[in-house]
Design a protein around this nucleic acid. Structure first.
Lengths: 143, 143
DNA sequence: ATTCATGCAAACGGTTTGCACGCAT
DNA sequence: ATGCGTGCAAACCGTTTGCATGAAT
């Protein structure tokens, strides 16, 4: 089933159905949080998939080109973070201790942006909001 | 006066008062928007200041260490963006056409964050909000 | 059979670092 | 006189690219 999962998705975008594209989509999807190219690469290696880092980057580029994946942000070490493009408007919550990242649906900014547009003569097309702090677990332990 | 401007600021932080530190602070401050290391470097060259790019980076690191400067974000080309640490809570508006960046004071997120904290058991320590769109000028011209 | 995907190694570009010299204290 | 700041070149690291090979259609 690994190999069939994303076949239709890829076909719809006129992309060839390759093992790598499938496994990369799978890794991103099931990790449930934004991941770096390196993470994808390592997870695949771990699963015994033979792949090169440049392929990961190329597949990511391809998938981004078809809007199946989005590069949502960048880690402290300047590594790009990628996730499935759910098309839903999401924001992120990063735990500064365990580095886990949560996605949050919904958005409190519509009114604010409308007010800013009026005040500044700017037309706002989008935004990116990242919050950071301590997650449930980390805030209750001392190390 | 170039040389005296930031002397006290530097002294207060136990930093030696050097020409480069002064001019870098000056360039960042008077540019009034987040700037890259390269921009700083080029502006200084333009002004006839002899400096190397690595010094720019080192001075930036030093100033960040003393909280005089903050690295607020990253350009599309992965260049870091630096600005004076005004200590005020600010957000940014980037014009996707002319690439000008505006800073906006104030923040509409307090309540939202409190609500999220309650809902998710997360303690939110901070956030970063970037908005993008078309500025006053750009939205009225076609090219 | 043709076109596109992949691996490898080399290139790239922003940033960092080691070392010798120079300047602020 | 001392220690910190600086320039230069080389290293570093995430990402991209050229080229030859392999797989999907």
């Amino acid at each position: 089933m690994d190999i069939k999962d994303y076949r239709d998705l890829l076909k719809k975008e006129n992309l060839r159905n390759t093992k790598h594209r499938n496994s990369i989509l799978e890794v991103i999807e099931e990790s449930g949080q934004p991941v770096t190219a390196e993470t994808i690469y390592l997870k695949l290696k771990e699963q015994g998939v033979s792949i090169s880092l440049s392929t990961v980057y190329r597949v990511l580029d391809t998938l981004i080109g078809k809007n199946l994946v989005v590069k949502t942000s960048v880690t402290d070490e300047n590594k790009g973070l990628y996730e499935i493009n759910s098309m839903e408007h999401k924001h992120h919550l990063l735990c500064i201790k365990c580095r886990k990242m949560l996605s949050v649906d919904g958005c409190p900014l519509e009114e604010y942006e409308r007010e800013l547009e009026e005040r500044l003569g700017f037309t706002i097309k989008g935004h990116k909001l990242e919050m950071f702090g301590l997650c449930d677990k980390c805030k209750n332990c001392d190390m």
